[in-house]
Amino acid sequence: MDLSVSGKTLIVRPKNVNAEVTPKYVLSKEQIDFYKKNGFLVVKGLINFECLYTVKKRFLQIVNGLEDTGFMTIVKEPGLAEKGAKGQDVINKINDIHFDEEFSSYSEDPRLLDVVGQLIGDSITIVHCMFINKPAGTVRHPPHQDLWYFPFRPADKIVASWTAVDRVQRDNGCLFVLPGSHLTHTLVEHHYPTDSNKFLFYGVRDESSAPEEQRVHLTMDPGDTVFFHPLLIHGSGPNVSKRSRKAITCHYASGECEYVAVEGTVQETVAKEIESLAKVKKNLDLNFVDTWRYKNKLVRGTKSNL
Protein backbone atom coordinates (compact mmCIF):
# COMPACT_ATOMS: atom_id res chain seq x y z
CA MET A 1 0.00 0.00 0.00
CA ASP A 2 1.27 3.45 -0.93
CA LEU A 3 0.21 6.20 1.47
CA SER A 4 0.65 9.81 0.44
CA VAL A 5 0.93 12.23 3.33
CA SER A 6 2.10 15.84 2.94
CA GLY A 7 3.37 15.04 -0.53
CA LYS A 8 5.48 12.09 0.59
CA THR A 9 4.74 8.44 -0.06
CA LEU A 10 5.56 5.64 2.37
CA ILE A 11 5.39 2.03 1.19
CA VAL A 12 4.93 -0.29 4.16
CA ARG A 13 5.53 -4.01 3.72
CA PRO A 14 6.25 -6.86 6.15
CA LYS A 15 9.87 -7.27 7.11
CA ASN A 16 11.04 -10.86 7.55
CA VAL A 17 13.66 -11.43 10.23
CA ASN A 18 15.35 -14.45 11.78
CA ALA A 19 12.84 -16.37 13.92
CA GLU A 20 15.34 -16.48 16.80
CA VAL A 21 15.48 -12.70 17.03
CA THR A 22 13.17 -11.01 19.56
CA PRO A 23 10.89 -9.32 18.68
CA LYS A 24 10.10 -11.56 15.68
CA TYR A 25 8.61 -8.73 13.67
CA VAL A 26 10.77 -5.62 13.71
CA LEU A 27 9.57 -2.21 12.63
CA SER A 28 12.09 -0.05 10.81
CA LYS A 29 13.05 3.38 12.12
CA GLU A 30 11.17 4.84 9.17
CA GLN A 31 8.00 3.03 10.18
CA ILE A 32 8.24 4.10 13.82
CA ASP A 33 8.98 7.71 12.84
CA PHE A 34 6.00 7.65 10.45
CA TYR A 35 3.71 6.43 13.24
CA LYS A 36 4.92 9.08 15.68
CA LYS A 37 4.45 11.86 13.13
CA ASN A 38 1.18 10.78 11.52
CA GLY A 39 -0.51 8.75 14.26
CA PHE A 40 -1.03 5.65 12.13
CA LEU A 41 0.93 2.98 10.29
CA VAL A 42 -0.21 0.37 7.76
CA VAL A 43 1.62 -2.96 7.53
CA LYS A 44 0.78 -5.04 4.47
CA GLY A 45 -0.09 -8.72 4.89
CA LEU A 46 0.71 -8.89 8.60
CA ILE A 47 -2.04 -11.39 9.45
CA ASN A 48 -2.05 -14.69 7.57
CA PHE A 49 -4.90 -16.43 5.77
CA GLU A 50 -5.31 -19.14 8.43
CA CYS A 51 -6.05 -16.56 11.13
CA LEU A 52 -8.43 -14.62 8.86
CA TYR A 53 -10.29 -17.83 7.98
CA THR A 54 -10.54 -18.79 11.67
CA VAL A 55 -12.05 -15.49 12.82
CA LYS A 56 -14.41 -15.23 9.85
CA LYS A 57 -15.66 -18.77 10.48
CA ARG A 58 -16.11 -17.97 14.18
CA PHE A 59 -18.13 -14.86 13.34
CA LEU A 60 -20.50 -16.93 11.20
CA GLN A 61 -20.87 -19.56 13.94
CA ILE A 62 -21.82 -16.90 16.49
CA VAL A 63 -24.29 -14.93 14.36
CA ASN A 64 -25.95 -18.12 13.08
CA GLY A 65 -26.56 -19.29 16.66
CA LEU A 66 -24.25 -22.30 16.43
CA GLU A 67 -22.17 -21.21 19.44
CA ASP A 68 -22.99 -19.48 22.72
CA THR A 69 -22.09 -15.78 22.72
CA GLY A 70 -20.78 -16.01 26.29
CA PHE A 71 -19.10 -12.72 27.25
CA MET A 72 -19.58 -11.29 23.76
CA THR A 73 -22.18 -8.71 22.72
CA ILE A 74 -23.78 -8.70 19.27
CA VAL A 75 -24.56 -5.22 17.92
CA LYS A 76 -27.13 -4.81 15.15
CA GLU A 77 -27.36 -1.97 12.63
CA PRO A 78 -30.61 -0.17 13.63
CA GLY A 79 -31.51 1.09 10.15
CA LEU A 80 -31.16 -2.38 8.65
CA ALA A 81 -33.10 -4.01 11.48
CA GLU A 82 -35.96 -1.60 10.82
CA LYS A 83 -35.96 -2.71 7.19
CA GLY A 84 -36.27 -6.37 8.22
CA ALA A 85 -32.73 -7.54 7.49
CA LYS A 86 -31.88 -10.93 9.01
CA GLY A 87 -28.85 -13.01 9.97
CA GLN A 88 -25.44 -11.56 9.29
CA ASP A 89 -27.01 -8.94 7.01
CA VAL A 90 -28.17 -7.01 10.09
CA ILE A 91 -25.09 -7.51 12.31
CA ASN A 92 -22.79 -4.53 12.59
CA LYS A 93 -20.23 -6.08 14.94
CA ILE A 94 -19.51 -8.40 17.87
CA ASN A 95 -17.89 -6.74 20.91
CA ASP A 96 -15.64 -8.17 23.65
CA ILE A 97 -14.36 -11.15 21.68
CA HIS A 98 -10.89 -11.38 23.24
CA PHE A 99 -11.82 -14.10 25.73
CA ASP A 100 -12.94 -16.42 22.93
CA GLU A 101 -10.28 -18.97 21.96
CA GLU A 102 -10.88 -18.68 18.20
CA PHE A 103 -11.00 -14.89 18.06
CA SER A 104 -7.90 -14.80 20.31
CA SER A 105 -5.89 -16.24 17.44
CA TYR A 106 -6.01 -12.67 16.13
CA SER A 107 -5.72 -10.54 19.26
CA GLU A 108 -2.81 -12.63 20.57
CA ASP A 109 -1.09 -13.23 17.24
CA PRO A 110 2.67 -13.06 18.03
CA ARG A 111 3.54 -10.85 15.04
CA LEU A 112 0.73 -8.46 15.91
CA LEU A 113 1.90 -8.25 19.53
CA ASP A 114 5.48 -7.71 18.34
CA VAL A 115 4.40 -4.54 16.54
CA VAL A 116 2.22 -3.39 19.45
CA GLY A 117 5.11 -3.90 21.86
CA GLN A 118 7.37 -1.66 19.80
CA LEU A 119 4.75 1.10 19.88
CA ILE A 120 3.64 1.03 23.54
CA GLY A 121 6.11 -1.18 25.42
CA ASP A 122 6.58 -4.81 26.43
CA SER A 123 3.71 -5.03 28.94
CA ILE A 124 0.54 -5.41 26.85
CA THR A 125 -3.07 -5.55 28.03
CA ILE A 126 -6.05 -6.05 25.72
CA VAL A 127 -8.73 -3.55 26.69
CA HIS A 128 -11.21 -4.01 23.86
CA CYS A 129 -11.60 -6.29 20.83
CA MET A 130 -14.33 -6.65 18.21
CA PHE A 131 -15.19 -8.25 14.90
CA ILE A 132 -16.79 -5.73 12.54
CA ASN A 133 -19.14 -6.94 9.80
CA LYS A 134 -20.48 -3.63 8.42
CA PRO A 135 -23.11 -5.11 6.07
CA ALA A 136 -24.33 -3.43 2.89
CA GLY A 137 -26.45 -0.41 3.76
CA THR A 138 -24.58 0.47 6.96
CA VAL A 139 -24.26 4.19 7.63
CA ARG A 140 -20.96 5.97 8.14
CA HIS A 141 -18.93 5.92 11.34
CA PRO A 142 -18.35 9.65 11.93
CA PRO A 143 -14.88 11.03 12.63
CA HIS A 144 -13.94 10.35 16.23
CA GLN A 145 -11.10 9.71 18.67
CA ASP A 146 -10.94 6.34 20.40
CA LEU A 147 -9.63 7.89 23.62
CA TRP A 148 -13.18 9.21 24.10
CA TYR A 149 -14.14 5.75 25.40
CA PHE A 150 -11.12 5.07 27.65
CA PRO A 151 -10.63 6.16 31.31
CA PHE A 152 -6.90 5.45 31.34
CA ARG A 153 -3.76 7.31 30.33
CA PRO A 154 -1.23 8.16 28.98
CA ALA A 155 -2.62 8.19 25.46
CA ASP A 156 0.80 7.46 23.93
CA LYS A 157 0.73 4.08 25.67
CA ILE A 158 -2.48 2.97 23.93
CA VAL A 159 -2.72 1.69 20.36
CA ALA A 160 -5.35 0.09 18.15
CA SER A 161 -4.84 -2.57 15.49
CA TRP A 162 -7.40 -2.86 12.67
CA THR A 163 -7.11 -5.68 10.14
CA ALA A 164 -9.03 -6.22 6.91
CA VAL A 165 -10.62 -9.69 6.83
CA ASP A 166 -12.07 -9.12 3.36
CA ARG A 167 -11.01 -6.50 0.83
CA VAL A 168 -11.77 -3.00 2.10
CA GLN A 169 -12.50 -0.26 -0.44
CA ARG A 170 -14.16 3.15 -0.60
CA ASP A 171 -17.52 1.75 -1.71
CA ASN A 172 -17.86 -0.64 1.23
CA GLY A 173 -16.77 1.92 3.81
CA CYS A 174 -13.01 1.86 4.28
CA LEU A 175 -11.36 3.71 7.13
CA PHE A 176 -10.14 7.25 6.76
CA VAL A 177 -7.58 8.98 8.98
CA LEU A 178 -6.51 12.58 9.60
CA PRO A 179 -2.69 12.34 9.60
CA GLY A 180 -1.08 14.15 12.50
CA SER A 181 -4.38 14.93 14.25
CA HIS A 182 -3.14 13.09 17.35
CA LEU A 183 -0.60 15.89 17.78
CA THR A 184 -2.82 18.86 16.93
CA HIS A 185 -5.88 17.88 18.95
CA THR A 186 -6.41 17.00 22.58
CA LEU A 187 -9.48 14.91 23.44
CA VAL A 188 -12.42 16.92 22.07
CA GLU A 189 -16.14 16.80 22.77
CA HIS A 190 -18.11 14.10 20.94
CA HIS A 191 -21.83 13.65 20.28
CA TYR A 192 -24.24 11.57 18.20
CA PRO A 193 -24.60 13.02 14.68
CA THR A 194 -28.07 12.61 13.16
CA ASP A 195 -26.78 10.28 10.43
CA SER A 196 -25.01 7.65 12.54
CA ASN A 197 -25.73 4.55 14.59
CA LYS A 198 -26.66 5.59 18.14
CA PHE A 199 -25.02 2.60 19.86
CA LEU A 200 -21.76 4.24 21.00
CA PHE A 201 -20.93 5.47 17.49
CA TYR A 202 -19.96 8.93 18.69
CA GLY A 203 -18.41 11.55 16.44
CA VAL A 204 -16.50 14.76 17.10
CA ARG A 205 -18.97 17.59 17.65
CA ASP A 206 -17.01 20.00 15.46
CA GLU A 207 -16.47 18.17 12.18
CA SER A 208 -14.47 21.07 10.79
CA SER A 209 -11.58 19.35 12.59
CA ALA A 210 -11.89 16.54 10.02
CA PRO A 211 -12.10 18.31 6.64
CA GLU A 212 -12.72 16.04 3.65
CA GLU A 213 -9.63 17.23 1.80
CA GLN A 214 -7.33 16.14 4.64
CA ARG A 215 -8.71 12.63 4.97
CA VAL A 216 -6.51 9.72 3.85
CA HIS A 217 -8.66 6.74 2.85
CA LEU A 218 -7.14 3.34 3.63
CA THR A 219 -8.07 0.75 1.02
CA MET A 220 -6.75 -2.57 2.28
CA ASP A 221 -6.38 -6.19 1.22
CA PRO A 222 -7.09 -9.13 3.55
CA GLY A 223 -4.40 -9.32 6.23
CA ASP A 224 -3.33 -5.69 5.89
CA THR A 225 -3.25 -4.04 9.31
CA VAL A 226 -3.32 -0.41 10.39
CA PHE A 227 -2.12 0.66 13.82
CA PHE A 228 -3.31 4.00 15.14
CA HIS A 229 -3.03 6.34 18.12
CA PRO A 230 -6.15 6.84 20.32
CA LEU A 231 -6.17 10.63 19.72
CA LEU A 232 -6.03 10.23 15.94
CA ILE A 233 -9.24 11.48 14.34
CA HIS A 234 -10.55 8.74 12.07
CA GLY A 235 -13.79 7.18 10.87
CA SER A 236 -15.28 5.29 7.95
CA GLY A 237 -17.74 5.94 5.17
CA PRO A 238 -21.12 4.27 4.58
CA ASN A 239 -21.24 0.86 2.92
CA VAL A 240 -22.90 1.59 -0.42
CA SER A 241 -21.76 -1.67 -2.00
CA LYS A 242 -23.65 -4.97 -2.08
CA ARG A 243 -21.16 -6.78 0.16
CA SER A 244 -20.13 -6.55 3.81
CA ARG A 245 -16.87 -5.01 5.00
CA LYS A 246 -15.43 -7.51 7.47
CA ALA A 247 -12.56 -6.47 9.72
CA ILE A 248 -11.23 -7.33 13.16
CA THR A 249 -9.79 -4.81 15.59
CA CYS A 250 -8.22 -4.72 19.03
CA HIS A 251 -7.15 -1.98 21.44
CA TYR A 252 -4.06 -2.50 23.56
CA ALA A 253 -2.76 -0.52 26.53
CA SER A 254 0.58 -0.63 28.26
CA GLY A 255 0.73 -2.00 31.78
CA GLU A 256 2.11 1.44 32.68
CA CYS A 257 -1.29 3.04 32.03
CA GLU A 258 -3.38 4.11 35.00
CA TYR A 259 -7.06 4.88 35.42
CA VAL A 260 -8.13 8.51 35.62
CA ALA A 261 -11.29 10.20 36.89
CA VAL A 262 -13.49 11.58 34.11
CA GLU A 263 -15.98 13.48 36.29
CA GLY A 264 -16.10 17.10 35.21
CA THR A 265 -14.52 16.32 31.82
CA VAL A 266 -15.94 15.92 28.30
CA GLN A 267 -16.04 12.15 28.93
CA GLU A 268 -18.84 12.31 31.50
CA THR A 269 -21.43 11.72 28.78
CA VAL A 270 -19.95 8.48 27.50
CA ALA A 271 -19.13 7.32 31.03
CA LYS A 272 -22.78 7.46 32.04
CA GLU A 273 -23.89 5.68 28.89
CA ILE A 274 -21.40 2.83 29.30
CA GLU A 275 -22.38 2.41 32.96
CA SER A 276 -26.03 2.20 31.89
CA LEU A 277 -25.28 -0.34 29.15
CA ALA A 278 -23.34 -2.52 31.59
CA LYS A 279 -26.43 -2.63 33.77
CA VAL A 280 -28.86 -3.33 30.92
CA LYS A 281 -26.76 -5.68 28.77
CA LYS A 282 -24.67 -7.50 31.39
CA ASN A 283 -26.67 -6.89 34.59
CA LEU A 284 -23.53 -5.39 36.12
CA ASP A 285 -23.66 -2.43 38.51
CA LEU A 286 -20.25 -0.93 37.72
CA ASN A 287 -18.78 2.54 37.46
CA PHE A 288 -17.02 3.66 34.27
CA VAL A 289 -13.54 2.59 35.40
CA ASP A 290 -14.72 -0.79 36.61
CA THR A 291 -16.46 -1.54 33.30
CA TRP A 292 -12.96 -1.49 31.77
CA ARG A 293 -11.20 -3.15 34.68
CA TYR A 294 -13.76 -5.96 34.44
CA LYS A 295 -12.82 -7.01 30.92
CA ASN A 296 -9.13 -6.29 30.32
CA LYS A 297 -6.72 -9.13 29.62
CA LEU A 298 -2.94 -9.12 30.17
CA VAL A 299 -1.33 -10.89 27.20
CA ARG A 300 2.37 -9.94 27.50
CA GLY A 301 4.39 -9.13 30.57
CA THR A 302 3.69 -10.07 34.17
CA LYS A 303 2.28 -6.88 35.69
CA SER A 304 -0.26 -4.26 34.72
CA ASN A 305 -1.76 -1.27 36.54
CA LEU A 306 -5.03 -1.93 34.70
Rank of each mutant, 00 (worst) to 15 (best):
R215A: 12
A253Q: 06
F59H: 03
V177M: 13
C51D: 10
V127M: 12
I11N: 14
S196I: 02
Y53F: 10
W162Q: 00
S276D: 11
N287G: 05
T194P: 05
G264L: 11
P222W: 03
P179T: 09
L60T: 11
Q169Y: 10
T225N: 01
N239M: 02
Y149N: 01
V42F: 02
L178S: 02
Y149E: 00
L231N: 06
F99I: 03
E189T: 15
Y192P: 05
L27D: 05
A160L: 13
D114K: 06
A261F: 14
C51W: 02
G264M: 13
N305I: 12
K281C: 06
P23H: 08
F288P: 01
G39Q: 04
F199K: 08
E101Q: 15
G264H: 11
V177G: 07
I74G: 01
Y106P: 10
T269G: 06
I97A: 00
F228R: 10
N287W: 05
Y25P: 01
F71C: 06
S107Y: 09
S107A: 13
M220A: 12
P151C: 09
Y35W: 10
E207T: 15
L231T: 01
K15N: 15
G121Y: 07
T184H: 09
V43G: 00
K57T: 15
S209Q: 15
P154R: 08
V165S: 02
I94M: 04
K86R: 15
V139F: 05
E82P: 02
L232R: 02
H128C: 00
K57C: 07
S6K: 09
Q214H: 13
E275R: 03
F228D: 10
G173A: 05
T9H: 09
D2Q: 12
W148V: 03
I91R: 00
I97C: 00
P23W: 07
L187C: 04
G84M: 07
S181Q: 07
R13S: 13
V177T: 13
N38Y: 14
S254F: 15
G237I: 04
F150I: 11
L232I: 11
M72I: 07
N296W: 14
T125H: 06
Y149F: 12
T54L: 13
I248E: 02
R215G: 05
F49H: 15
T269S: 12
I120F: 11
N133I: 10
Y259L: 11
I11F: 10
V280H: 13
G39C: 05
